[in-house]
Write a protein that binds this DNA or RNA. Structure first.
Lengths: 208, 208
DNA sequence: AAACTTACTGAACACTGTTCAGTAAAACAA
DNA sequence: TTGTTTTACTGAACAGTGTTCAGTAAGTTT
């Protein structure tokens, strides 16, 4: 049985090796400039080898997408410990914005680029692949629900309130990541302050 | 002088021909699946011909991006006529959302895809290319400023308020266009209603 | 009519994602 | 130990992409 175990370990190690190289290059050069050929070259294998471990490029990037969500969820743990749901909501927003500013490539892959979504759709029956995104959304939803129950915010519908909260914050960071604030001519630091100030203001508006 | 005029017209017609074919195929198949070779085939010229009229693919799509903004600005004219700035703000939001839902490919190109931004950056001195985006933002900014002046909304800083308003609405539609609402399992109609309801709620929160 | 310019092209270049027949090495069975 | 089967990997091919360039035919100018 030792041979089968060793082969299983070898397989997992190879999978991880490809994933690490891909992640490294993706963070370095961005999605558009990370090719399977360049990843293969980095690990000193043929491009065809990658297809023994991943169905296609989309599936490989889906795995990186999942790493990004695990990172985000880990950061969200801190917010999860805050008792006051309104403070928690605010903290969730801040962590989300800081995560996006610190990890723009991950954020892009998690919330904008279509590749991981394509890969998840192909695994129709596999509900697991959506669970990371759902976990993040559930934390927000739960927090918003508690805010509503304790009458800390004006909104009554938790789904709608979760939606515009997420959208607002996503809009803030995604317009930055896709370079659409250039019309405003701000430095990075000015922009960062403005994003956090916008969040503050939004939370202020939501407050009952 | 007739020859020079005729050659100028010919050049403009060729430019328009390429742009129309590109726009048609882009709206039909989306950005990812619209290649210069396929555009060239449609107009029955060689791919190399396109480079006589456009610097590269990014510049061609920048021209389509501009058409999208012209369309959006035209739709915004209706909102421009509303005297009450808060009602106008609400209408601007609605028009923005409806535009995105009706023209997802244009919206994607205008606010998410990097190609047009790359092309505009290359024309550093040419401030004209940013003016369409700025015009849209200026209408929002002006409306928000009037709301603040007339104490119709709580916010005091027009830049911040414009920013989170734009971001919120952009977030709503861009998460849809990039298929990130699938975690929520909603039909298109349910989603559309929810987007508009979120906008209503946001405006409600903003109200003084 | 000769010379020059312009608009266009086919082919090339360098790259991409993906597949497949072939092969060497590992594992298995006798 | 040997023969057979399986596995992991590869080089090459396929079909496609954006972009450039030397060559050419037609139009324009002298």
């Amino acid at each position: 049985m030792g041979i089968a175990e060793r082969k299983g370990r070898d397989k997992q190690e190879m999978y991880d090796k490809i994933l690490r190289a891909a992640t490294y290059m993706f963070l370095e050069d961005g999605y558009e400039k990370t090719s399977l050929r360049s990843i293969a070259e980095k690990i000193e294998y043929s491009p065809a080898t990658i297809y023994l471990y991943f169905k296609d490029k989309d599936e490989l990037f889906c795995a990186i997408h999942d790493i990004g969500f695990q990172m985000l969820l880990k950061e969200m743990e801190a917010a999860g410990k805050i008792k006051n749901p309104l403070k928690r909501l605010h903290e969730i927003g801040k962590i989300y914005i800081e995560f996006a500013l610190k990890n723009p490539e991950y954020y892009d892959l998690m919330f904008i680029i279509r590749a991981p979504i394509n890969a998840m759709r192909e695994k129709q029956g596999d509900q697991n692949c959506w669970e990371l995104g759902q976990a993040t959304f559930m934390l927000l939803m739960q927090t918003v629900t508690e805010c509503i129950e304790q009458k800390l915010i004006k909104s009554k519908d938790p789904v709608v309130a979760s939606m515009y909260t997420w959208s607002a914050v996503h809009g803030l960071v995604s317009l930055k990541i896709r370079d659409r604030y250039e019309v405003m001519n701000l430095t990075d630091e000015q922009l960062r302050k403005m994003l956090l100030q916008s969040l503050d203001e939004l939370i202020g508006l939501m407050k009952a």
